[in-house]
Design a binder for these strands. Structure first.
Length: 113
DNA sequence: CGTCTGACGCCCA
DNA sequence: CTGGGCGCCAGAC
């Protein structure tokens, strides 16, 4: 969008909101789609404020290993794991089983144009 | 303006 | 194979 500059965060939120139900993605994948590739940390940092935005399925975003690295920020309990399980995703030991199977690549599934 | 942090990722020992 | 450290980028203080 030719909008001035919504900010890196909003782009993360927009993309995160596009994650389909029952799918998950990684911080790095989002970062790469935004063009920063190595700023995966920023994605996680943005997620920190995601709680200020509605419709941000942050629980569908995990690290590249499929580990619920941010589950701690969901209230202190396994809320994140339960949310994923509720979507049909198997979570064991704070790790998504068959993560690759549920992986949703924004640059591939959400092809440009 | 300078400094630090941060829900990551990859390289190296 | 496992652990530790550095790098990246943008926002908050």
């Amino acid at each position: 969008m030719p909008d001035d500059g919504p900010g890196f965060f909003e782009r993360v939120y927009e993309l995160t909101k596009l994650i389909p139900y029952g799918r998950v993605t990684s911080y790095g994948a989002i970062a790469r789609y935004l063009g920063s590739g190595r700023s995966a940390r920023m994605v996680g940092y943005a997620m920190n404020n995601s709680h200020l935005y509605p419709g941000i399925p942050a629980h569908r975003v995990v690290n590249r290993k499929g580990m619920l690295s941010g589950k701690q920020h969901f209230g202190g309990r396994d809320i994140m794991a339960q949310l994923l399980t509720n979507e049909g995703i198997i979570v064991e030991n704070d790790c998504i089983v068959d993560f690759d199977k549920y992986f949703w690549d924004p640059g591939r599934e959400l092809k440009p144009e």
